[in-house]
């Protein structure tokens, strides 16, 4: 894959695998959806930032809220893996899971959000 997502400098890329290819929306071929997917993807960096800040501050309420919204929207925009990953974060917060596993789950979610692409395949 040539279109690798760019990695913002200075962010934690510990769990990011540079070989992972961009995540394409299931609905990318639907002309009605194309513009919306673009909007959704353009807003993802802001979500990623909220997730990172919330994680750093151990702000579980915000973590849970952002994850909940990503869970509801991700699949709707053709990114079911974002939905399942966000659901896992939400579940871990609710279950008051250990910090390590929460970190890992949030990193997975962030990684998926970064890979999401609005380009048609």
């Amino acid at each position: 894959m040539q279109d690798r997502p760019s990695i913002a400098p200075g962010v934690n890329t510990e769990h990011f695998n540079a070989d992972q290819e961009p995540l394409t929306s299931q609905f990318a071929a639907d002309p009605d959806m194309l513009e919306l997917i673009g909007m959704f993807v353009r807003e993802l960096p802001a979500r990623v930032e909220s997730l990172q800040q919330a994680l750093a501050r151990s702000d579980l309420a915000t973590l849970s809220q952002v994850a909940h919204q990503l869970k509801g929207a991700g699949g709707g925009y053709g990114f079911p893996s974002i939905t399942s990953s966000a659901a896992e974060v939400e579940r871990l917060v609710k279950a008051k899971a250990e910090v390590d596993s929460l970190h890992e789950a949030v990193s997975d979610l962030i990684s998926l959000c970064r890979r999401a692409s609005s380009n048609p395949r």
Binding site: D32, M33, L36, M39, F40, E43, H68, Q69, G72, A73, G76, Y77
Partner: peptide, 16 residues
Amino acid sequence: DDSQQMHPLIQVRLRG
């Protein structure tokens, strides 16, 4: 719905 992203999505899906 408090999630802003749901609204345009529903709009497009119900267009028909």
